[in-house]
């Protein structure tokens, strides 16, 4: 019988491959793409059972002051961000290690919410910089132009043969890419390769 009570630090899927520094072709302006891993994110999937969309939405709004976004969108309040993932399905994210899952469970289960913890299931890479969009465009077929994919736009799509979520954050060229944890190394290698001509800074 062991006496541990607090969990150890979380280990990134990229722990063994992430080498901070500049990679690829570095021009005089420096790397035009920056990659960082968003670690220790709590990410809870929230579904609404049939006919409970409004009720679940209200419960979340009351507790977090956060409106659940419609298709292809994300909303943020404080340190909680909600992403639309599919019909009656959202992902609630926070960087503050907190009790998001039990809170959501207790708030929504009575009104038809279904809560599934996905905090460990996804690797999230933040890609930013002048050539972030071009780097992603080498593989995804969605239109990343600001006219079509504005701030707080979210898409489930394909990237380097993976099913991913692309979340356009604030600013002109900041994207979060969520991929299945098991494919993290593939995503990382593919992004480094695609961004090589622009220069990639790993933070």
């Amino acid at each position: 019988m062991s006496e541990s009570t607090t969990p150890p630090p979380r280990r990134s899927a990229l722990a063994n491959v992430w080498h901070p520094g500049d990679h690829g072709r570095i021009g005089f302006t420096g790397p035009q793409v920056t990659l960082r891993e968003r670690r220790d994110i709590t990410a809870i999937q929230l579904d609404a059972q049939r006919g409970t969309t409004d009720g679940v939405g209200k419960a979340v709004a009351a507790a977090f002051g956060l409106g659940l976004p419609g298709p292809g969108r994300a909303t943020t309040t404080g340190d909680v961000r909600a992403l639309w993932l599919g019909p009656d399905r959202w992902l609630l994210q926070t960087a503050t290690p907190a009790d998001l899952e039990p809170r959501l469970r207790s708030l929504t289960e009575g009104v038809g919410g279904v809560v599934v913890d996905q905090s460990h299931g996804r690797t999230i890479l933040r890609i930013e910089g002048a050539k972030a969009r071009d780097t992603l465009a080498k593989s995804t077929g969605i239109d990343l132009h600001p006219r079509a994919f504005a701030e707080n736009a979210v898409a489930q799509t394909s990237l380097f043969q993976l099913a991913v979520t692309i979340d356009r954050r604030r600013g002109t060229s900041i994207f979060d890419v969520h991929a299945m944890r098991g494919f993290a190394v593939h995503l990382y290698e593919a992004l480094l390769d695609a961004g090589g001509e622009y220069g990639v800074r790993l933070v």
Binding site: M1, S2, E3, S4, T5, Q45, D47, Q49, R89, V114, V116, D117, Q118, S119, H120, G121, R122, M180, R181, G182
Partner: peptide
């Protein structure tokens, strides 16, 4: 009914053998 893949959320390992319970008991927290 709502269905979701949680394959990636959970690492899984199988502990097997006559001594499996002793090992698990020793590793398990209070």
């Amino acid at each position: 009914v709502r269905v979701t893949s949680v394959t990636e959320q959970w690492a899984a390992m199988a502990l097997a053998g006559p001594k499996a319970r002793e090992v698990l008991a020793a590793a398990a927290d209070h």
